[in-house]
């Protein structure tokens, strides 16, 4: 008797949650279970903090791009140009540093300018001319990829000293080190990009939760018609979402560049799809109005952890990564769909 009561209260608690929080909870729980599973079945590698930090190092840029995508998806839009922008930023920065005698600051400035330009133009077309965001950003992706080749068609590594120094900067994470095979204590570290990524996650979280503009994104994504009636400037809000996403594309591109240290037209191939997938796994709904930045962070972590598990399980043939990510995406989508539908049903009764 008692158990059934408890079960009921848990159910009603779930039904009382907002959609955003419910999906966030699912994401976090699945990530924790997955990481525990990795530790149990894949052994000690995953127990070392550095394994986790390496995931962060490799995917710092993806965290930033996913934040941008979560934002536009919450507002009811989409941006598939971020991968192309990342490649373009890397190439332009690389050319600037090695061929044009630039320094870190000019490179950073270029990255930001590219981000601002893409964000502003795409935002204008989507918000003020009312063109479907998918088409606009699809063209943006084509443009960025094509421009990358036009800027420089062959890949190369950057040798600029100042840059290499920044690239190799390791920030020690206290108390998280481990003892290696020779019995020497090795500190754990993260790269500069991770700090940037985490700062952006915090900024975005605060912005979405506690600012007026942040709540407007949710309102417009939930129902643009109503948002207009409620006195919200829908066009401006839409513009801002695409604009911020563009800037985050620029920053994410720079962080990516900082990690790989080279320029190439094939950089960040498919990054836009990984970012969309991360956002979805993190509980953002493409229909708009529902999503959470913390969830997005966990989405990226889940995605990259599963890639890690696949490669450490010896399934390093390329196709396994694609198939496992797809399977995971499928799983999450079905969970989301079933949970949301179930919740609706329980509400109706």
């Amino acid at each position: 008797m008692k158990t059934s009561n408890e079960k009921k209260s848990l159910l009603s608690k779930i039904a009382g949650m907002t959609d955003s929080n419910l999906l966030l909870t699912i994401t976090v729980v699945v990530f924790v279970l997955m990481y525990l599973g990795a530790i149990i079945f894949q052994g000690k590698g995953f127990l070392k903090p550095q394994t986790f930090f390496n995931i962060l190092n490799t995917n710092a840029y993806l965290i930033i791009l996913s934040c941008g995508l979560s934002l536009v998806m919450i507002t009811g839009g989409i941006d598939i140009s971020v991968g192309g922008v990342t490649a373009l930023v890397s190439m332009c920065c690389a050319v600037n540093l090695d061929y044009k005698n630039g320094n870190i600051f000019t490179a950073l400035l270029i990255a930001l300018l590219i981000g601002v330009a893409f964000g502003a133009v795409q935002g204008f077309l989507v918000a003020y001319l009312d063109i479907q965001p998918f088409i606009v950003t699809l063209a943006g992706m084509f443009f960025a990829r094509g421009m990358t080749t036009i800027v420089n068609s062959s890949p190369f590594n950057v040798a600029n000293e100042q840059f290499v120094k920044l690239k190799d900067t390791r920030i020690i994470v206290p108390f998280m080190g481990s003892v290696n095979k020779k019995g020497v204590y090795v500190d754990s570290y993260v790269e500069v990009g991770v700090i940037v990524a985490l700062a952006i996650v915090i900024l975005m979280f605060v912005m979405l939760k506690w600012t007026k503009l942040g709540r407007q994104f949710y309102a417009v994504g939930g129902n643009p018609q109503s948002a207009l009636m409620l006195g919200i400037n829908v066009k401006f809000t839409r513009f801002m979402s695409q604009f911020i996403c563009g800037i985050l594309g620029g920053i994410g591109g720079f962080v990516y560049f900082l990690h790989v240290g080279s320029g190439s037209p094939s950089h960040a191939a498919g990054a836009e799809m990984n970012a969309i997938a991360s956002s979805i796994i993190g509980g953002t709904m493409l229909t708009g109005g529902v999503g959470n930045i913390i969830g997005t962070l966990f989405g990226v972590l889940s995605l990259s952890t599963i890639q890690n598990i696949v490669s450490s399980a010896g399934l390093d043939q390329a196709w396994w990564t694609g198939i496992t990510i797809a399977a995971m995406l499928c799983l999450f989508l079905v969970i989301q769909s079933v949970v949301v539908a179930g919740k609706k049903k329980s509400l109706r009764k």
């Binding site: 907002t18 959609d19 955003s20 506690w210 600012t211 007026k212 503009l213 942040g214 709540r215 407007q216 949710y218 309102a219 994504g221 939930g222 129902n223 018609q225 109503s226 948002a227 009636m229 409620l230 006195g231 919200i232 109005g289 529902v290």
Partner: peptide
């Protein structure tokens, strides 16, 4: 102020947000 026949509120937001959104000029909420 207007109340329409069709609900013109945002279903994904909380009741309180629906009552206050689009009204203040504060940056923070």
């Amino acid at each position: 102020s207007t109340v329409y026949q069709e609900i013109t509120l945002c279903p994904n937001l909380s009741v309180a947000e629906n009552m206050y959104i689009g009204r203040s000029n504060n940056i923070m909420q």
